[in-house]
């Protein structure tokens, strides 16, 4: 659980070799990890070096051609495209999510729990339903345009749905809670006296924020950025539904390999490449945060 990293040093003090009972308690998690993380990844790894036959079945015939194809300029462009979208999403989520998380984290306990509940509520409905709801809000004859037209703020319906902007709206909407929650965790732990100390020492709100609050909530920011950026790169449903399927993201391309194109080995190679990319990003940022 990446967001827990901030807690690690505290736990380490009590570290001790788990006994048999400890391992037994641990077993379901290990089993789960093995069945749903390690095994599928291993299968994908093997597939990524295979070929497909006429029907699209995987043929075990070693080849690196899938990987050479990954680095074709078509897919590189899609990779950079996806990274751009994910980066924009992450930045907006951070800008929007930080103040929200901060507000919740500093609110009184009673209000805090209610606000947290509000952040969680969207998870109660299916992701697809929420996406369709956004589509009907943004559509040309939807309530947003209706309201703007009624208020005479615009003369003609805004063209939002099926544009890159709609994709970003959808991505931000979906991933915002994943930014808010870890930052909230950091903010909640933040000692109010430290903020007061900053004010006391002559720091205005801006300086106090940049010199004290941000550095002290960095673990939360870091976790939030990871939790938003990484899944956002691979997202495909939103690009299809809200982007009108025009902007292929790497997630769409991969999905296509397992669907229409029926080229599992190539899809696996794309997936493995992405996995490596994430691992590299993660290692790099971990080293950075260690150094800081």
């Amino acid at each position: 659980m990446t967001p827990g990293t901030g807690q690690l040093p505290e736990i380490q003090g009590a570290q001790r070799r788990p006994g048999l009972r400890g391992w037994l308690l641990f077993a379901p998690l290990m089993l789960w990890l093995f069945a749903f993380v390690i095994a599928p990844t291993a299968i994908m790894f093997v597939y990524s070096f295979c070929q497909r036959d006429e029907l699209g079945q995987v043929v075990f015939e070693f080849s690196l051609s899938n990987y050479t194809r990954v680095f074709d300029k078509t897919y590189l462009k899609i990779f950079t495209n996806s990274i751009q979208y994910a980066a924009i999403t992450t930045v907006i989520c951070l800008l929007v999510g930080y103040p929200v998380a901060y507000f919740i984290g500093r609110a009184s306990e009673q209000i805090r729990n209610k606000l947290l509940m509000l952040v969680m509520i969207p998870f109660w409905t299916s992701f697809l339903i929420r996406t369709y709801a956004w589509m009907s809000i943004l559509k040309a004859e939807g309530p947003l345009n209706g309201m703007l037209l009624y208020m005479q703020l615009i003369a003609a319906p805004l063209d939002i749905l099926y544009t890159p902007a709609a994709v970003v709206i959808g991505l931000v909407y979906s991933y915002l809670p994943f930014m808010i929650l870890p930052i909230y965790g950091s903010v909640e732990k933040l000692d109010n006296a430290l903020i007061e100390a900053a004010f006391d020492l002559g720091a205005g709100p801006v300086s106090a924020f940049s010199h004290v609050i941000v550095p002290l909530t960095r673990p939360g920011i870091f976790a939030g950025v990871l939790l938003v950026f990484i899944p956002a790169i691979g997202m495909f449903a939103i690009t299809d539904l809200m982007g009108g399927g025009r902007v292929p993201m790497i997630g769409n391309v991969i999905q296509n390999q397992f669907g229409q194109a029926r080229d599992w080995p190539f899809g696996a190679a794309l997936g493995m490449t992405m996995l490596l990319l994430f691992a590299a990003c993660f290692a790099l940022s971990m080293r950075k945060s260690d150094a800081a």
Partner: peptide, 20 residues
């Protein structure tokens, strides 16, 4: 006036040293 515009300084009970 906000604290940062007052010529006073405080020593906090918990010290409130910046841990970073």
């Amino acid at each position: 006036e906000p604290p940062y515009r007052r010529d006073v300084n405080q020593v906090f009970q918990s010290y409130a040293l910046f841990p970073h």
